[in-house]
Structures are given as structure tokens and as C-alpha cells.
Measured scan of single mutants.
Amino acid sequence: LTVEVTLDGRRIELHGLSEEAHEILRHALERNADDKEIKKILEELRK
């Protein structure tokens, strides 16, 4: 799955996400998580 997010003013596409990762990010974006929170989530998903 692919998600497009804006971090530090740049639009980035995240490819190859699992369903779980996609859901976690989608929920964070829906509640307008800040860049710091999104980065933390991405860091966790990379593990």
C-alpha cells in the first residue's frame, strides 16, 4: 500500500506499507498528528 504524507513541508510517498502500517498512519493523519508524531510512527514501523 502507498500513503502520501507531508513532512517538513515536503510531500513524500511511502510505498510497500503493510495493512497495519497503513491503518496506523491513516489514523494519525486523520487526527492531524504533527510532524514529530508522524516521524516517530515511521521510525517504529521501520523496525
Rank of each mutant, 00 (worst) to 15 (best):
L1S: 07
L1H: 12
L1G: 08
L1V: 12
L1Q: 09
L1N: 08
L1M: 11
T2D: 05
T2C: 08
T2H: 08
T2V: 12
T2R: 08
T2Q: 07
T2M: 12
V3L: 13
V3F: 15
V3P: 03
V3K: 02
V3E: 04
V3Q: 05
V3C: 07
V3N: 03
V3W: 09
E4Y: 13
E4F: 14
E4A: 12
E4L: 14
E4D: 05
E4V: 15
E4M: 12
V5N: 02
V5L: 15
V5P: 02
T6W: 15
T6H: 08
T6M: 14
T6R: 03
T6L: 12
T6A: 04
T6K: 04
T6N: 08
L7A: 03
L7R: 01
L7N: 03
L7G: 02
L7E: 04
L7W: 04
L7K: 02
D8F: 03
D8H: 05
D8Y: 03
D8E: 07
D8V: 01
D8Q: 04
G9H: 03
G9N: 04
G9M: 01
G9S: 02
G9L: 02
G9D: 06
G9F: 02
R10E: 15
R10H: 12
R10D: 13
R10G: 11
R10Y: 15
R10M: 15
R11M: 05
R11A: 06
R11V: 15
R11F: 10
R11L: 14
R11I: 14
I12R: 02
I12C: 07
I12L: 07
I12S: 02
I12T: 05
I12G: 02
E13D: 07
E13R: 13
E13W: 14
E13H: 11
E13P: 05
E13M: 11
E13N: 08
L14V: 12
L14Q: 01
L14M: 05
L14G: 01
L14W: 04
H15A: 08
H15Q: 08
H15I: 12
H15N: 10
H15W: 10
H15E: 09
H15F: 10
G16D: 09
G16V: 04
G16R: 03
G16F: 09
L17P: 00
L17R: 00
L17V: 04
L17Y: 04
L17A: 01
L17F: 06
L17T: 00
L17M: 06
L17N: 01
L17G: 01
L17H: 01
L17W: 03
S18T: 10
S18G: 05
S18N: 07
S18W: 04
S18E: 04
S18M: 03
S18P: 06
E19F: 14
E19K: 14
E19G: 08
E19S: 11
E19H: 12
E19N: 10
E19M: 13
E19C: 09
E20I: 11
E20F: 08
E20L: 09
A21T: 05
A21P: 00
A21G: 07
A21W: 15
H22V: 15
H22R: 10
H22M: 14
H22L: 15
H22S: 11
E23K: 13
E23I: 09
E23H: 12
E23G: 10
E23P: 00
E23S: 13
E23N: 13
I24D: 02
I24M: 09
I24F: 07
I24E: 06
I24L: 11
I24T: 07
I24G: 02
I24R: 11
L25R: 00
L25V: 07
L25C: 00
L25P: 00
L25I: 13
L25E: 00
L25Q: 00
R26M: 14
R26F: 06
R26D: 01
R26L: 13
R26T: 14
R26Y: 08
H27R: 15
H27Q: 14
H27A: 15
A28P: 00
A28G: 01
A28N: 01
A28I: 05
A28L: 09
A28C: 04
A28H: 04
L29M: 11
L29H: 03
L29G: 02
L29N: 03
L29K: 05
L29E: 03
L29V: 10
E30L: 11
E30R: 04
E30N: 10
E30P: 00
R31H: 10
R31N: 11
R31A: 10
N32D: 09
N32C: 07
N32Q: 11
N32M: 10
N32S: 07
N32Y: 09
N32K: 12
A33Y: 08
A33P: 06
A33T: 04
A33H: 03
A33I: 05
D34Q: 06
D34G: 13
D34K: 08
D34P: 13
D34W: 03
D34F: 04
D34N: 12
D35C: 06
D35F: 08
D35V: 09
D35W: 10
D35P: 08
D35L: 07
D35N: 09
D35M: 08
D35K: 04
K36T: 12
K36F: 13
K36H: 14
K36L: 13
K36D: 14
K36P: 06
K36M: 13
E37C: 02
E37P: 00
E37I: 08
E37A: 07
E37T: 09
I38V: 07
I38G: 00
I38Y: 01
I38K: 01
K39P: 00
K39S: 09
K39A: 09
K39T: 09
K39R: 13
K39M: 14
K39Q: 11
K39C: 09
K39Y: 12
K40I: 10
K40E: 12
K40Q: 14
K40D: 13
K40Y: 12
K40R: 10
I41E: 00
I41L: 10
I41T: 01
I41F: 04
I41S: 00
I41M: 05
L42S: 00
L42N: 00
L42I: 14
L42C: 03
L42W: 04
L42A: 01
L42G: 00
L42H: 00
L42D: 00
E43Q: 09
E43N: 07
E43G: 08
E43L: 10
E43V: 09
E43K: 10
E44G: 08
E44I: 11
E44D: 11
E44N: 09
E44T: 11
E44M: 10
E44V: 09
L45R: 01
L45C: 04
L45P: 00
L45K: 01
L45T: 03
L45Y: 06
L45F: 08
R46S: 09
R46D: 12
R46P: 05
R46L: 15
K47M: 15
K47T: 13
K47V: 15
K47S: 13
K47E: 09
K47F: 15
